[in-house]
Design a binder for these strands. Structure first.
Lengths: 225, 225
DNA sequence: TCTCTTCCTTACCATTTGGTAGGTAATACT
DNA sequence: AGTATTACCTACCAAATGGTAAGGAAGAGA
């Protein structure tokens, strides 16, 4: 019948994880029936449970996939430019794009933090060393005189900001407008806050190279709606 | 209209809303059985449905209570100090304390944004005029030369930051430590980011009056789980 | 006392849903 | 070919859960 083992490029298991990620992100773990996942993949419900012992294991699979992906992507940050402003743009852009590229990831993580704080803590723990690495670069880049900045806390807050931005953008657009321009203002201000709080308004403005993590068109003008 | 018997200290209806807020915040709307709310209040499940036509109406009651509370509190911001730095501290402190004083509110709002974006949008819409008022003050306080700041977007992001901070603090403490000092660093950096991104690092440091929004009222909140 | 209203109870129902039983067809292995 | 394994199916079950039915206690007003 329909393409069996040979024609199967992506394993059914991976499809389950992918669809579950999307559905969990949209409706939440508890509100997503196993049947919906099965339907999305195109198999029966017991077939899903053939690949995972339980629904709970699907959730773990989704979470592990996200963090594994992130653990794989994050090290690229550590190879970024050496000049502090350029490095900042690079690092911020990487983090931003990781979540913005697929809001499902941000939504899922946000839900896990709410629903299962203890497990979310454990998962976050697996990337703490890398976050500390980023914080270390910030500390080194700013030098001794920046004793008002707390790099560890800063990294945490910016990660939060990016996650919540990816999560809430569709809701907060009621204030800035739903169009592309509203979203552009939103993204630009997010990048500005992240940068200006580190280098100061002057420093951030002086090098406005990568304020909005390269959307399509960066409109430098700003208007009231 | 329903003045009802005066003997009642706190109406059962209000108790239902209060307990539902706590439970919905902790576990989510879908994952909170009606029975749990009934148990928390100390009545039977059908008794809960005597006060609310359905579980859905309880959710609406919780949301309305939160936003009504906020709509009532926010105007105080508009009476704050006139000097821009002092006003900032005042406004930021108000927003921060509103959510930090009761993390359930932040958690509930965060969940609503994830689960029911359209309704969350509508609710946010009811406070947009006030947010624009705050943005207007920021615009006026900074003057013409601060054309890099987008006050409307700024207000949205800071609100997001405060909400997500109240929501995720218990998880992110894995990086900064669970003790009071870790939380203090967390709060201090949050305030610093909010302020420095508006006034610049120099401006923010010059007036470090209200970095960590006094925890007097928010501190003794640790019980119940 | 009788009646009406409000608030609340116990019993019950219908639906949803995670998970299981047991069988079948295709594939891999020998 | 013969056998074991993998992947999947239909049918089913037990638990959880939102909501309903029907009625009782308590107070107010007559």
């Amino acid at each position: 019948m329909v393409g069996t083992t040979a024609a199967r490029r992506v394993s059914v298991r991976d499809q389950v994880v992918a669809e579950a990620t999307r559905l969990f992100a949209a409706s939440g773990f508890g509100a997503t029936p196993l049947q919906d996942i099965a339907d999305a993949v195109g198999i029966s419900k017991p077939a899903v449970l053939h690949h995972f012992p339980s629904k709970e294991h699907i959730r773990l699979g989704v979470m592990e996939a996200i963090f594994a992906h992130w653990r794989e992507q994050l090290p690229r940050l550590l190879l970024s430019a050496t000049e502090s402003h350029a490095r900042f743009d690079s690092v911020f852009g990487e983090v931003y794009r990781f979540f913005a590229a697929n809001p499902d990831r941000a939504r899922f993580v946000a839900r896990e933090v709410l629903d299962r704080p203890a497990q979310a803590r454990a998962m976050l723990g697996t990337i703490v060393p890398m976050l500390r690495g980023i914080a270390g670069y910030i500390r080194a880049g700013l030098g001794e005189k920046a004793d008002d900045v707390d790099p560890d806390a800063y990294v945490i807050h910016i990660m939060q900001l990016v996650i919540s931005a990816s999560t809430m953008a569709d809701v907060t657009s009621v204030m800035l407008g739903d169009g592309a321009e509203g979203r552009a203002r939103y993204d630009r201000e997010l990048a500005r806050i992240a940068k200006a709080s580190l280098f100061g308004r002057r420093g951030a403005r002086a090098r406005e190279t990568a304020s909005p993590p390269s959307k399509k068109s960066a409109k430098p003008r700003r208007r009231r709606a």
